[in-house]
Amino acid sequence: MKMEQDTRITDGQKFETALKYWLACLADDELTLGHRDSEWLGLCPDIEGDVAFSSIAQDEVGHAVFYFDLLHQLGEGDPDRLAFSRDQHLRRNAILLERPNGDWAYSILRHYFYDLFDDLRLQSMESSSYAPLRQGTQKIRREEYYHLLHMKTLFSRLGSAGGQARERMEEALLKVWPDLGDLFDFGPYEKELLEFGIISLSGSEVRRRWEEQVRDALLSIGFEWPGEIPSSSRSGRRGEHSSDLQPLLDTLCEVYAIDSNARW
């Protein structure tokens, strides 16, 4: 009886560690991409598109807030502290998302590929054993439906327009490809996440399904499959980032850092 209880506590701790790690990956992905998206404000190719793109940026940051709130409920710092005062080696976002926006083709292609990934990741949480995550991700997935449709439409049109647009999309694909590796790295607690039923799909399964969808998407605009995704030497999921993250964090945290105890 006593033994059993001990195992439960240990399991409880393992559960919590794995869950927190997973939530940080989710929160940091969404915050980082939402931040990059927001840099497009006022700079999109047309005014109507500018307005629409900003909603996507807000949704991404909104989703980050949801995940940070869950972390906070599990005893971590308050959401703002988590967002604005963690060093880069504690940030869990994939490297792809910290890259600067580049041109419109790169931004759209990156976003579409990430949204396809995120949709699969959300699917893997729809029957999560952790109820708050299960409930939240169902809502988030409904919002992400619009993002996917939006990005898919832009991706298809830009990809099939020929001329400069096609060249830029080809360049974007080559630029995105080497950065994809750590997107599917579910981190050191992947086994626990699956065992505890926090998620139902492994990183490699998500990757398999993602590759299937991306293969079709590329085919639909007459693009060739660029070959196997290179395995990355670094993983953002483990706090190993590119040199693009620190400048992003410097900007993100600039005002907060003036006085991190003040009310802003």
Partner: peptide
Amino acid sequence: PSPDVALILAREN
């Protein structure tokens, strides 16, 4: 540029 894009833009605008 087209009806499908118009619909996507209309939602947020």
